[in-house]
Amino acid sequence: MAGDAVPADAVPADSVPGEFSTLLVDRGPDRLHVRLNRPEVRNAIDQAMIDELHLVCAELEREPRILIISGAGGIFASGADIAQLRERRAADALQGINSGLFGRIARLPMPVIAALDGWALGGGAELAYAADFRIASTTVRLGNPETALGIIPAAGALWRLAELVGEPVAKEIILAGRILNADEALAVHLVTEVHEPGALLAAAHALADRIAKQDPLATRIAKQVFHAPADAHPQADNEAQAVLFESEAKFARMTAFLERKKR
């Protein structure tokens, strides 16, 4: 689809055909672009996709890079795979199958960008909530219809969504089944940018470019300290800054800045 068209030089990719069954993965020196790819079920998140996303996380934990997550075929993710979800029992819920993955994605060392196109519902929405940035196409539809299916959104929406949009809007989405369109999601700051579908991935890569221009160590530490518990500040900030004050990149970047000012 048009929304999957990215300029050839946008990210030098190193894809491995057939590496995954539910994901398409493009690797670049400073980023990974992962596309959810189960078009026959609107990219519903099943156990195989969960397992493969854990492999992606393990790779990014070993070699930190920016992660872009999108969906193939004009849809981000229509939710968890209902056929599998219907068969899960209490023991499965206690394992935290989806919440464990989404927490791991949220904790990745470098920023995560969710590029949302079409449906981003249920587990798909919760995956997006775990990202550091959410940008959307004009076709996006975001929401959590789990209570209509007799369950709750237990993979992060019950607490992440309120942090992102506030309690009143979060309750309207979770308890009353409200589905947000692109303009509504932008108005409540659930997404920060809206683009035409054909420009969405280029915008995601442009955002990744801006992130990549920052010092990687400073970016990683800033993300880590940003999510530290409230009572950890300001000590965590001071300790992190102490590390960066001794880094070679700090001296090199500040020297370059001062040299530019002399010109």
Rank of each mutant, 00 (worst) to 15 (best):
residue 150 G to C: 04
residue 168 P to H: 04
residue 40 E to F: 03
residue 138 T to W: 00
residue 214 Q to R: 14
residue 93 A to W: 10
residue 38 R to H: 04
residue 83 A to I: 05
residue 12 P to S: 13
residue 133 F to Y: 14
residue 110 M to D: 02
residue 187 A to N: 05
residue 57 C to I: 12
residue 58 A to L: 08
residue 169 V to I: 11
residue 7 P to Q: 10
residue 17 P to G: 10
residue 248 E to R: 12
residue 102 F to M: 13
residue 238 N to P: 04
residue 199 A to I: 00
residue 128 A to S: 02
residue 121 L to A: 02
residue 161 L to Q: 01
residue 64 P to V: 06
residue 173 I to R: 01
residue 214 Q to N: 12
residue 19 E to I: 04
residue 236 A to I: 07
residue 246 E to Y: 03
residue 146 E to T: 12
residue 162 A to V: 06
residue 151 I to L: 15
residue 51 D to V: 13
residue 100 G to I: 08
residue 163 E to S: 09
residue 100 G to R: 07
residue 18 G to W: 11
residue 184 E to V: 01
residue 216 P to F: 09
residue 234 P to K: 02
residue 73 G to C: 11
residue 149 L to F: 15
residue 164 L to E: 08
residue 193 E to W: 05
residue 11 V to W: 12
residue 174 I to H: 01
residue 132 D to P: 05
residue 202 A to K: 05
residue 196 E to L: 11
residue 84 Q to I: 03
residue 234 P to F: 03
residue 87 E to D: 13
residue 188 V to L: 00
residue 206 A to M: 03
residue 24 L to N: 09
residue 152 I to L: 15
residue 38 R to A: 11
residue 232 A to I: 05
residue 47 Q to K: 11
residue 218 A to K: 07
residue 39 P to C: 07
residue 81 D to Q: 09
residue 200 L to N: 00
residue 219 T to Q: 13
residue 68 I to V: 14
residue 144 N to E: 12
residue 187 A to K: 10
residue 94 L to G: 08
residue 84 Q to P: 01
residue 155 A to L: 06
residue 258 L to D: 15
residue 163 E to F: 01
residue 182 A to P: 00
residue 139 T to G: 01
residue 19 E to H: 12
residue 11 V to A: 13
residue 75 I to Y: 05
residue 156 G to D: 02
